[in-house]
Design a protein around this nucleic acid. Structure first.
Lengths: 274, 274
DNA sequence: GTTGACTCTCCCGTCCGGGGAGACCTCAAC
DNA sequence: GTTGAGGTCTCCCCGGACGGGAGAGTCAAC
């Protein structure tokens, strides 16, 4: 059983680099069968080709070295399965990340590489009577909350026999970001003087006035640059924010792909800059 | 225009970390509008929020910092488009890599985490008469070459009115790996004494003898561990390789998913070990 | 003047090795 | 015994894009 193999030959056999073998030795992942105490030369056995191949395979699927060590150390198959499953979850989430990035980049290329294609304009918004529903939501729940909220408002309008009188929108009474929740109001314009039955959906009037506005094209999740462009514009132009911002949904996610969604973002301001 | 902003506030505005801003400064990617020469304090302008957001977006899709610098430096839109397209290709290849790894891991989990599920057996293979076609191929072309090769052999058999007499296989006369090409012979067993018309597909007999054998289950691209297990087994058992290895295709890629493909790998050996 | 928040530079760590320097070793040929 | 070729050792630096922290200096409000 003295089939000792120098590191170079073993590297060729296992298709691992010498550097990698030394590193795995240092990490306690694949220790040479014998190390000459005088020279420090590492010698491996043929029987170590199996573990070496396992390491190669697991590294090829990008499992961290420390986890490979743990996985090889205990030979409980159940535990092994758990570790592999954990790694699968990691790979899956990385895969969806990659997909998200690629989709985003493709949209970016579609619009000519224009990273922030936002033009800010000022307009006078008119006061608008709406059927409104106020909800409380955090960043994780906001999407579903708005969706359900519109369902509720549409339902209330239907029950009252009222026709919508304009594009639906949402008023953000609080800043909702990664770390804070707040109130949003789901609004659908209705004819002035409409009466609604008692309930959470209530008739009132959203005040008008000057607003800074821009239009975002694309999925809702990527709207945040639009907000930043507007707030930056407001600061640069010496205006002051003057009330809750709103998002007006210019087309319908049911009939249009996410890439084509148009959303107008409006910030009420105190005056019209020169 | 002295709207100078300290790094902390600018970091919150742009949602970039202070560390990142300092790094981008150092890399020439986003230089502060003014740096106090006495204290070294960095001060930014509101107008820099735009470039900062662009950087944030491009980093979010994992574009390298150096390329973002280049991309922001020249403002030729055509060049920008090219850079983005190049990055798209990178993201795409990473995506397919991730997919490959995930698929591989899922198959690995399916077979119970058994990384090298190969059992090597020794058997006496019988001499087999075949219709054979020899091709020359490299690692990149081997898959397509074998596929077309089988098409050619099947065609020749059909034209000659001969029925296949066993599972098709391939003999590897040379080692084909990342850096070397070689000859492979595409074989379909036929009844002894078959005569074939002149052409590249020729009748002859593959010799029998003792072989070390194992069965690979899964896509052809992942067969290499099977080879390593066999060659390792041969060395460990003191046998000697004695002729060209063969791959026998036990089922049909047309009727079975890649996960279920069964391929027997046989290495002729000189003698049957004890 | 004091305090507390802010900012600076510098260094180390991440993860998995690759590249190279300079010294040492092994094996075979002569 | 000697020589030479090639194999191997340890040690150090490098990448990418920052994060963490130390120790020192600064700013703004009271």
């Amino acid at each position: 059983m003295d089939d000792l193999i120098g590191i170079g030959r073993f590297a060729r056999m296992s298709r691992l680099s010498i550097k990698a073998l030394r590193f795995y030795d240092e990490q306690g992942l694949l220790t040479p069968a014998w190390v000459d105490p005088a020279t420090g030369y590492r010698y491996y056995r043929r029987a170590q080709a199996g573990p070496a191949e396992a390491i190669r395979v697991l590294r090829a699927i990008d499992m961290p070295v420390g986890e490979i060590r743990d996985l090889l150390a205990d030979d409980d198959p159940g535990l092994t399965g758990k570790r592999l499953a954990a790694h699968r979850e990691r790979l899956r989430s990385r895969l969806t990340e990659q997909e998200r990035m690629l989709r985003f980049l493709e949209r970016l290329i579609d619009r000519g590489g224009n990273i922030m294609p936002y033009e800010v304009t000022v307009k006078q918004s008119l006061a608008v009577p709406v059927a409104g529903l106020t909800l409380h939501a955090g960043p994780a729940t906001i999407g579903a909350a708005i969706h359900q909220g519109f369902g509720a408002v549409v339902g209330a309008l239907g029950a009252a026999g009222v026709q919508p009188a304009g594009a639906p929108f949402v008023v953000y009474h609080d800043i909702i970001d990664e770390k804070s929740e707040g109130d949003v109001e789901i609004c659908i314009p209705v004819p002035a003087g409409t009466t609604l039955p008692d309930g959470p959906v209530r008739y009132h009037e959203i005040p008008g006035g000057p607003v800074a506005s821009t239009v975002h094209r694309g999925p809702y999740q990527e709207i945040s640059p639009a907000y930043h462009v507007i707030t930056g514009w407001i600061e640069e132009n010496g205006a002051k924010s003057h009330g809750a911002p709103r998002e007006i949904y210019l087309n319908d996610p049911q009939t249009v792909t996410p890439d084509e969604l148009l959303t107008e973002v409006q910030f009420p301001i105190d005056r019209t800059p020169a």
